Computed example of a mutant assay.
Amino acid sequence: MNCEQIKKKISIRSVLESFNLYPEKQNSKTAFYFAIDREEKKPSLCVDFVKNKAFDFGTGKSYDVVSIVQQMNKCSVSEALEYLKKFDIPVNSLNINRNESNKNYKILEVKEIEHPALVQYLKARKVFEQRHLVKEIHYQMNGKPYFGIGFYNNSGGIEIRNKYLKICLGKKDVTFIKNHNVKKEICVFEGYFDFLTYLRLPNAQNSNSDFLILNSTAMFFKIEEELKEYEKIVLFLDNDLNGKNLTEEIINKYESVEDCSVLYRSFKDLNVWFLSNLKEWQ
Results as ranks from 00 to 15, higher is better:
1 M>Y: 13
2 N>W: 08
5 Q>S: 05
6 I>P: 02
9 K>L: 14
10 I>L: 09
12 I>T: 12
16 L>N: 07
21 L>V: 10
23 P>V: 03
26 Q>P: 02
27 N>Q: 08
29 K>S: 15
29 K>C: 02
33 Y>M: 05
35 A>Y: 03
38 R>A: 07
39 E>S: 14
39 E>G: 11
39 E>Y: 12
41 K>F: 09
44 S>E: 14
47 V>F: 10
47 V>Q: 10
51 K>R: 09
57 F>H: 14
62 S>Q: 10
64 D>T: 00
65 V>K: 00
66 V>P: 08
69 V>H: 07
72 M>H: 06
73 N>K: 12
73 N>A: 01
76 S>R: 03
79 E>N: 09
83 Y>G: 01
86 K>R: 11
86 K>L: 04
87 F>A: 01
88 D>M: 01
92 N>E: 15
92 N>Y: 14
94 L>R: 15
98 R>Y: 13
100 E>A: 11
102 N>S: 13
106 K>G: 12
110 V>K: 15
114 E>C: 15
114 E>F: 01
121 Y>Q: 04
123 K>N: 13
125 R>V: 00
128 F>V: 04
129 E>S: 14
131 R>C: 10
135 K>V: 09
136 E>D: 11
137 I>V: 14
141 M>Q: 08
142 N>V: 04
142 N>G: 10
142 N>T: 07
144 K>E: 00
145 P>T: 04
146 Y>V: 01
148 G>A: 01
151 F>E: 06
153 N>W: 10
154 N>T: 07
155 S>Q: 10
157 G>R: 02
160 I>S: 06
162 N>M: 11
163 K>A: 12
166 K>W: 06
171 K>E: 08
181 N>I: 12
182 V>W: 00
188 V>F: 07
188 V>S: 02
192 Y>L: 09
193 F>P: 00
194 D>N: 01
194 D>V: 00
194 D>C: 03
195 F>I: 01
195 F>S: 03
197 T>Q: 13
201 L>D: 03
201 L>M: 09
202 P>W: 07
203 N>P: 07
203 N>D: 13
209 S>V: 04
211 F>A: 06
213 I>H: 01
215 N>E: 04
219 M>R: 13
221 F>P: 04
230 Y>V: 14
230 Y>T: 05
234 V>F: 01
237 L>S: 14
238 D>S: 06
238 D>P: 10
241 L>C: 10
242 N>R: 09
242 N>Y: 02
245 N>G: 08
247 T>V: 03
249 E>T: 08
251 I>D: 11
257 V>Y: 05
261 S>V: 02
261 S>R: 05
263 L>D: 08
264 Y>A: 09
270 L>V: 02
273 W>M: 04
281 W>M: 05
281 W>I: 08
282 Q>M: 02
